[in-house]
Design a protein around this nucleic acid. Structure first.
Length: 609
DNA sequence: GCCGTTTTCGGCCCGACTGTTTTCAGTCG
């Protein structure tokens, strides 16, 4: 018997988190104790990060512990998951309308200002606020001048023009441009791209640069007057912020020479990671900030006078060491278990780009790629791969010029001829620069999983490929049961070796497929079918949290470029970065294996003869 | 509101920049 279906929809983790963020926001505007509001926001973040559907679990009576969610908030989740309502949320909404709370999103406008304009200015929404500021009706309020009104209007305009988060490849290009422009400024000895870009998040909100220099004024002057700067948001002696013409905010911090350690830690870690480090420091009797460690006195405040002491470090390893921790790689600094692991010396030995021996997913101009089979193979070979799998689309994906069985047969001949030439060159000692002798182009396909859960080629044709990558492109809006059944059908096929971009997402575009992930991970682990981390910066799918759960579930992964042109073969680097964020080690990844090991794994799939 | 091999009560991360209430509160990262 299945569970009774509740008469109201259960929220996804993101939606549940949004409710608690909203509660935290309302309490801030109400002037509630700050630690209480922080507790709601922290709980919301923890819920958003939870690796299972929290509302579903709570609805079923499974109140798994979540760090940051205590008795009171857990009860509220249960209330919402079992009744469809949360009394506190309803009451707070009645007290302060959401349209008032939305004003918190305006840069430069915080809870105190929102409360002031709402209670004393009668402002009920962002649009109200804009009109009141334009009409000069706010300046009578305590602490608000004409300049403040101007600032509020700027903030509203900035919010409207904000272009959302950047893809990591776009952010990297913009950041590189700024770094190049700052290089050579007098006194500058080092520039580090910190923040979420250094943590290699899939999307980036704003950019953080750390500049080691003996002449802070010079670099801040140069930075705030770059041609790419639209306007300066703020500039002091040690830091400055600008908005670029592209709409991206860049924050620059100056660090004194020889003291980079705590600066790098502070401006790289996520807020939660940093909070955890500061807590550790406090336990050891020190206050940690970007400037270094300040010794605490008996009163818990930084010691003064003769007892005052500031400890600085030249590099990050020394900072973590001072806290009794192993150096945490930037990609892991998200407060997802890395701090205890660093203390216990159980951090993973993360995969690197150099561990990859080949690429299991790429296209040519035979389907929807740009370059020829030979061009793609040569390019892969000269990148030092041991193997490259050509995986043009199967016949059903008409829009991508999928191949019918005759065309597949023709490809086979071309691939054999290329491999013969490569072998002859190797034998003659004419292996090209960058290449490794023995390179093989493998014949694969990207097999469409049809809407009815059947596969797009017959088994006898599939059996002749070296390796098969399967994926879902069509009928994406099916209910979860159907979509899951399709993915499971591919996983259980004796001929499918990799599930490509399993969630089917496009960053900033398509959402994830609605799959029963526990079922997918269990089947993939049982059959040895690899789940892909697709390196295309538009996809980066599996996402890190899912990839981490996949590995914990016993799955093997692949990290592939999905290249449609020669240059895109390098996209595996983005995939490797996401794998690192997922705590992935080389042993978890199929294409870290040698050609012989790869082929042995494929041949060993259950049901294969 | 959360949390504890130092605490079940009393703490809870830290500093720069801005503008104005000109000594500090508000906002941000």
């Amino acid at each position: 018997m299945s569970d009774p279906v509740p008469p109201f929809p259960l929220p996804a983790n993101d939606d549940l988190a949004a409710i608690f963020h909203e509660i935290g926001d309302v309490l801030e505007v109400k002037g509630e104790l700050v630690f209480k509001t922080v507790a709601y926001h922290r709980a919301a973040d923890a819920i958003a990060k939870a690796p299972f559907n929290v509302a579903e679990a709570y609805a079923g009576g499974d109140r798994r512990p979540i760090a940051g969610v205590g008795q009171a908030i857990a009860d509220k989740i249960t209330e919402l998951a079992t009744t469809g309502h949360m009394a506190l949320h309803d009451r707070l909404r009645a007290e302060i309308p959401p349209s008032v709370i939305e004003m918190l999103a305006i840069p430069g406008v915080g809870p105190k200002t929102v409360r002031l304009v709402w209670e004393e200015g009668g402002v009920e929404s962002m649009e109200d606020l804009r009109q009141a500021a334009e009409a000069g009706r706010l300046r009578g309020l305590r602490g608000i001048t004409a300049a403040t009104e101007r600032r509020i209007l700027d903030g509203i305009a900035q919010l409207a023009s904000r272009s959302g988060r950047l893809r990591i490849d776009q952010a990297q290009a913009i950041s590189d441009g700024v770094v190049d422009a700052l290089r050579g400024t007098s006194g500058v000895t080092r520039i580090v791209q910190a923040g979420s870009l250094r943590r290699r998040r899939e999307t980036i909100g704003d950019l953080d640069l750390l500049v080691e220099t003996t002449d802070a004024a010079a670099v801040i002057e140069r930075f705030t007057t770059l041609p790419s700067v639209d306007r300066v948001l703020g500039a002091g002696r040690a830091k400055a912020s600008v908005l670029l013409r592209e709409g991206v905010q860049v924050d620059l911090m100056v660090m004194p020479p020889g003291e980079a350690g705590t600066y790098l830690v502070h401006f790289t870690g996520s807020a939660d990671h940093n909070v955890a480090l500061r807590g550790l420091a406090r336990d050891l009797g020190w206050s940690l900030s970007e400037k270094g460690f300040l010794r605490l006195g008996a009163d818990g405040q930084p010691a003064e006078g003769a007892d005052a002491e500031l400890r600085t470090f030249a590099d990050e390893a020394a900072v973590y060491g001072f806290l009794g921790l192993a150096l945490v790689p930037p990609e892991l600094r998200e407060d997802r278990g890395e701090v205890p692991a660093a203390r216990a010396r159980t951090l993973p030995a993360l995969i690197t780009h150099g561990n990859l021996r080949g690429d299991l997913h790429s296209h040519s101009d035979w389907s929807d790629g740009v370059h020829t089979i030979e061009q793609m193979a040569e390019a892969a070979r000269r990148r030092g791969h041991a193997y490259q799998v050509l995986t043009d689309h199967s016949q059903g994906l008409g829009i991508a010029h999928g191949l019918d069985p005759d065309r597949v047969e023709q490809q086979r001949g071309i691939i054999a001829a290329l491999n013969a030439r490569f072998a002859a060159e190797d034998a003659a000692g004419e292996t090209p620069a960058g290449a490794v002798p023995g390179f093989r182009l493998l014949h694969g396909c990207e097999l469409e999983v049809r809407a009815d859960a059947t596969l797009d080629y017959e088994d006898d044709l599939l059996a002749r490929f070296d390796l098969v990558v399967a994926s879902v492109h069509v009928a994406r809006r099916q209910p979860r049961a159907e979509l899951t059944a399709r993915t499971l059908a591919a996983i259980r096929s004796a001929h499918v070796d990799v599930i490509a971009h399993p969630a089917g997402r496009m960053i900033g575009g398509r959402d994830d497929l609605d799959l029963d992930w526990d079922a997918v991970f269990a089947a993939a682990a049982a059959t040895g079918t690899a789940l892909e981390i697709n390196g295309s910066p538009q996809r980066l799918d599996l996402a890190p949290e899912r990839a981490r759960r996949a590995v914990e579930s016993g799955c093997i992964l692949s990290i592939d470029s999905d290249a449609h042109r020669v240059e895109e073969l390098d996209a595996v680097r983005w995939g490797v970065e996401q794998a690192r964020r997922a705590w992935v080690e080389p042993r978890h990844v199929l294409n870290t294996r040698s050609l012989a090991e790869l082929l042995a794994h494929v041949a060993g799939k259950p049901g294969r003869v």
